[in-house]
Design a protein around this nucleic acid. Sequence first.
RNA 1: GUCCCCAUCGUCUAGCCUGGUCCAGGACACAGGCCUUUCACGCCUGCGACAGGGGUUCAAAUCCCCUUGGGGACGCCA
Length: 485
Amino acid sequence: MSAIENVRVRFAPSPTGYLHIGGVRTAIFNCLFARRHGGEFLLRIEDTDVERSTQEAVDQIIDSLRWIGLDWDREPVFQSKRLEIYQEHLERLLKEGQAYRCYCPAEELEAKRQKAIAAKVTYKYDRTCRKRDPDEDPAGRPFVVRFKTPEIYPDHYNDLIMGSIPIDEEKLDDWILARTDKTPTYNFSVVVDDATMEISHVIRGNDHKDNTPKQILLYQALEYPVPSFAHMPLTHGPDGSKLSKRREQEYRKLGISVSVQEYRKMGYLPHALLNYLARLGWSHGDQEIFTRSELEQKFDLDAVGKSAGILDPSKLKWVNAHYIKETGDSEIAELLVPYLAELGIEAAADPPGHLQNIVSTLKPRAETLVEMAEKAVFYFKAPDSYDPKSRKKWWKPGAEVVLEKIRGMAESLDFNDESTVETAFRKLADEAAGGKLGKVAQPIRLALTGTTVSPSLFEVISILGSEEVIRRLDRALAELSGNPA
RNA sequence: GUCCCCAUCGUCUAGCCUGGUCCAGGACACAGGCCUUUCACGCCUGCGACAGGGGUUCAAAUCCCCUUGGGGACGCCA
């Protein structure tokens, strides 16, 4: 697809809670689409539901969007500050006879709806008030304003992702534009906002697909140009159904979450999540890894699929692991600090380069920053116990000889230098273990880390430094001789 | 219930529009191997799908129809 002129898109969350993972994906698609075509990406906060909207949620959403690296082009628009605009449009429709006041009591309509549901038929407003002459409207009674659905309308609309979608009479209710308290309903405010903000492409979740016919008719009634629509497939949970905030506990066990913030807590890099989410439902040949600018160059709606995507934590982890390896040691070190703090380790005051060195040994071994922090603990805290199984296997009688020899080397050689350590070990392995490095390394690894799994021992030793190595060896030696220190 | 949408390996997908190059390609996961001081990383190999049935055609994953399965929407929520 070649570049489209005058693109302006928007992301329009309602601030009733944290940012939904499906929400960011919508935001990502919008933003990338705008960048791809040199257009604008705007943010609109849909806070007309005063009861449920909070400032805290607004802050959280903005924070999450920034974290993942999304940038919008103008000040965010708040619907709550645009009430007069909706009112103007409403009056215009009323005056032109394209909308009418409905005095039917809410309870009465609700009862009819329940009845329809019980009878298993589609509920539609019976248009009682449409039939009345507006001049005969009862004065002083509460009313809502309904859209007077025109008799003639297009039989379909063209969706940029889903293709041709029929407009079905069944769905064209005389829906409510404004509530009794005069506030606009969603379908009314979006249209007024998108039209007045001159949005060119409405890219949103597939769950809004059935609202589109209503909205198109409103654009036409208001004589605004109808934007292009693109309904993206939804993001589903592992069971294949729509993600539900209520099932968060269940998701947690599987390593996914509905909340964007949680992914930060789980130790994902923002660009990794962005990359993963962009690739969920969109593709560019066989490419999996995209830089930000590649995404901005290559993303387009014509390569977006039609079917819903299931969040796959293992693929996400793989993408994350990839970026952990790709990113520089110092950057990762900086990002790691808060995760270490969670474990009670204050690494910020360490000598410069210390944490970077640690990070460089852990990068190929961690899929998330949480995992990396956990694996870094032994560098900061000497083992307080030794894995019993490994003890049995590697600390057989005579093992103390090896520990003592290494201890001696640590005293006489420069163990802050990795290659010196390696040379010493190889020499010892030749002399004492028939060249089997493992026989020397494992007992030492156990002494130094408490387990038999760690980064390269040579790296570990050079990072720990001679002093600390001696301390840990002494402690292990004491343990071996039956006199734990 | 009504309406709408979707349908390629377990998952994300390429291919479908413009039928043949596809006994269907890549990635994640999984299994095995190599490398190796352990664990990883990396590399190699393997496993694994056109939902089913009818058409159309010399030829269908690709076009048409039906069935089945899945999802979404039916508010004075957004």
